[in-house]
Amino acid sequence: MAKSNKPIIWGAFAAGGEAVSLVAPAIILLTLLAAIGRVPPGLSYEQMHSFAAGWFGKLVLFAIVFLSLWSQAHRLRITCFDFGLRADGLVATLFYMLAGAASLWLILILGNI
């Protein structure tokens, strides 16, 4: 039987799409409040650090950022194709490598908190 990497890519893509759709607007709103100078108590160093220091916070942050990275990498690949950039092999390699490197960086960051 022919083997395909599609289910794995699609799994991360679908889970990422779902996770991002559920939490991105609220998280971007919090960041927007910080950007206009009204930093929400949750984004203060004390609360963010104590959240990210615990295993539950690490798990939540890892899931959101990891899934978003792979979902956006996959979607940006398709977006490039749709805008007429047809070097799909090159584009796919570039975005998936970036997502892979960013995922490793994310693990190192969370390990350091």
């Binding site: 998280i27 990210a52 942050l61 950022v65 960051i109």
Partner: peptide
Amino acid sequence: VIMLVGLSRLS
């Protein structure tokens, strides 16, 4: 990417 940079600064 902004979230990643923020977490990096947090660490």
